[in-house]
Amino acid sequence: MAPMSDSSAATTLLPPGSLPLDELIACPQCDALFHARMPGRGQRTSCARCHTVLIAPRTNAYLRVIALALTIVILMVAAMFFPFLAVNVQGFTNKASILDTALAFLDGGFMATLAVLVAAFIVLIPLLRAALVIYVLAPLAAGRRPLPGARHMFRLSEDLRPWSMAEIFVIGCAVALVKVSDLARVEFGVAFWMFAALVVVIVFQDGIMCRWTIWKALDDTRNR
């Protein structure tokens, strides 16, 4: 969640007049209608009724978000190839990569479905979302027209947001390590730290991305 410190007052409640429809904004949570206006630098606009944040622009946001999305892609791909965790019991050792973890359910017959789901939740969906965000924002940052299908890509990325569970997986690692600690000695690999860093980047990226600004940019260029 974004910091609450400098949240500004909400946009004025709309007098039912005749403004063009694309200057209006409806709160997605409570349907209250407002006249959409860009808040001042570093300020946020939230719904006067239910306090849902509606508009929270940042300076250079496109470039920053793209940089963070690239970081996510690089860290995720790199984390696939480095050792993740290893255990050591009385001379026996076993290493597991991130993919091994996702595919742990593969040999369980009907549980293979779960392997696909886990791989999607912790690797594929976070990776796909980062790629979609780059696809949507790169032309906007360069001041060009959006690439074909950009609006559908952005919608897909937003739809997938609750299903990206990398941060839950990291906490899951912590729990698993405590569970296994009286059975074996555990060593962290490079990929573990990469993944932990990745989670911080994902949370930060979601925090600084202003959806309304992006939708408006995608809309404006269409009508140009």
Binding site: L85, V89, Q90, F92, A104, M165, G172, C173, L183, A184
Partner: peptide, 30 residues
């Protein structure tokens, strides 16, 4: 809530040490 499923996945992938110790997921995971 998905955290427990991930814990099982991590344990099952990690603790595969022949007869010394091994962990496999049960049907409740799915």
């Amino acid at each position: 809530s998905m955290i427990d499923v991930f814990v099982v996945a991590i344990l099952a992938a990690l603790v595969q040490l022949n007869f010394a110790a091994s962990i496999t997921p049960g049907p409740a995971a799915i």
